[in-house]
Measured scan of single mutants.
Amino acid sequence: KKPMSASALFVQDHRPQFLIENPKTSLEDATLQIEELWKTLSEEEKLKYEEKATKDLERYNSQMKR
């Protein structure tokens, strides 16, 4: 599977709780709203997800070399 971006990892982490809190929201709308939240994060908060994305890219690259 392809590597995930930092923002995609953020959405993946936050979507389940968002949908619990907003059960009538469609998956598409939830994703859009969480992506807007991503844009408001500080660089420090984004760094955690950027590090995860880097590790996921390394995983992807090692799988492609096999």
Rank of each mutant, 00 (worst) to 15 (best):
K1R: 07
K1Y: 08
K1E: 13
K1M: 12
K2W: 00
K2V: 07
K2I: 03
K2Q: 02
K2Y: 11
K2F: 06
K2E: 03
K2G: 01
K2S: 07
P3T: 14
P3K: 04
P3N: 14
P3A: 03
P3I: 05
P3V: 15
P3F: 15
M4F: 10
M4I: 05
M4A: 12
M4L: 13
M4R: 10
M4P: 12
M4Y: 11
M4S: 13
M4H: 13
S5A: 06
S5P: 15
S5D: 04
S5G: 13
S5I: 04
S5F: 00
A6M: 01
A6T: 01
A6C: 05
A6Y: 00
S7M: 15
S7H: 09
S7W: 03
S7E: 14
S7T: 10
S7Q: 15
S7R: 15
A8L: 05
A8S: 07
A8R: 10
A8Y: 01
A8I: 01
A8T: 15
L9G: 05
L9T: 05
L9S: 06
L9M: 08
L9H: 09
F10M: 03
F10C: 00
F10S: 03
F10R: 01
F10T: 01
F10K: 04
V11A: 10
Q12T: 02
Q12G: 02
D13G: 00
H14N: 08
R15L: 13
R15H: 06
R15T: 10
R15G: 02
P16G: 06
P16L: 03
P16R: 11
P16Q: 13
P16D: 15
Q17H: 01
F18S: 03
I20F: 01
T25H: 03
T25R: 05
T25A: 14
S26H: 04
S26E: 05
S26M: 02
S26N: 08
S26Y: 00
S26T: 12
S26A: 06
L27S: 12
L27M: 11
L27Y: 11
L27I: 04
E28D: 01
D29N: 10
A30F: 01
A30W: 01
A30G: 03
A30C: 04
T31N: 03
T31G: 05
T31M: 02
T31W: 00
L32F: 14
L32D: 05
L32G: 06
L32S: 08
L32V: 10
L32M: 14
L32H: 07
L32T: 06
Q33S: 06
Q33D: 06
Q33R: 06
Q33I: 00
Q33K: 12
Q33V: 05
I34T: 03
E35V: 02
E35T: 07
E35P: 09
E35Q: 03
L37H: 13
L37C: 06
L37Q: 14
L37N: 11
W38I: 00
W38C: 15
W38G: 05
W38A: 04
W38V: 02
K39Q: 14
K39H: 07
K39P: 06
K39A: 12
K39D: 05
K39E: 11
T40W: 06
T40Y: 03
T40G: 13
T40C: 15
T40E: 13
T40A: 05
T40Q: 11
T40L: 10
T40N: 11
T40S: 09
T40R: 09
T40K: 10
T40D: 10
L41A: 15
L41Y: 02
L41M: 09
L41V: 13
L41E: 05
L41N: 02
L41R: 07
S42E: 10
S42C: 06
S42G: 08
S42Q: 05
S42N: 09
S42I: 02
S42K: 12
S42F: 00
E43D: 14
E43R: 13
E43Y: 10
E43T: 14
E43K: 06
E43S: 13
E43N: 14
E43L: 12
E43G: 11
E44K: 12
E44D: 11
E44F: 05
E44T: 09
E44Y: 05
E44A: 11
E44G: 12
E44V: 10
E45P: 00
E45S: 07
E45D: 09
E45Q: 09
E45G: 06
E45N: 03
E45R: 07
K46V: 03
K46W: 00
K46Y: 00
L47H: 14
L47E: 08
L47C: 09
L47T: 13
L47K: 06
K48S: 09
K48F: 10
K48I: 05
K48W: 07
K48M: 10
K48Q: 08
K48R: 09
K48L: 11
Y49T: 01
Y49A: 02
Y49C: 01
Y49K: 02
Y49M: 00
Y49N: 01
E51H: 09
E51N: 12
E51F: 06
E51G: 06
K52M: 15
K52P: 04
A53G: 02
A53H: 05
A53P: 04
A53I: 00
A53S: 10
A53E: 06
T54M: 08
T54I: 07
T54N: 13
T54L: 13
K55A: 15
K55M: 12
K55L: 12
K55R: 11
D56L: 09
D56R: 09
D56W: 06
L57I: 09
L57R: 12
L57Q: 10
L57Y: 08
L57E: 12
L57H: 10
L57W: 10
L57G: 09
L57S: 09
E58W: 03
E58Q: 13
E58D: 12
E58T: 08
E58V: 10
E58I: 08
E58F: 05
R59A: 14
R59Y: 11
R59W: 09
R59T: 12
R59L: 13
R59G: 07
Y60F: 15
Y60H: 12
Y60L: 07
Y60M: 04
Y60K: 12
N61P: 07
N61I: 03
N61R: 09
N61C: 02
N61V: 06
N61K: 14
N61E: 14
N61S: 11
S62C: 15
S62G: 09
S62Q: 13
S62T: 06
S62W: 11
Q63S: 07
Q63T: 12
Q63F: 13
Q63W: 07
Q63I: 04
Q63C: 10
Q63N: 15
M64D: 05
M64T: 09
M64P: 10
M64L: 09
M64I: 08
M64N: 09
K65T: 06
K65V: 12
K65Q: 14
K65G: 02
K65S: 15
K65L: 14
R66Y: 12
R66P: 15
R66E: 14
R66N: 14
R66D: 15
R66I: 01
R66F: 15
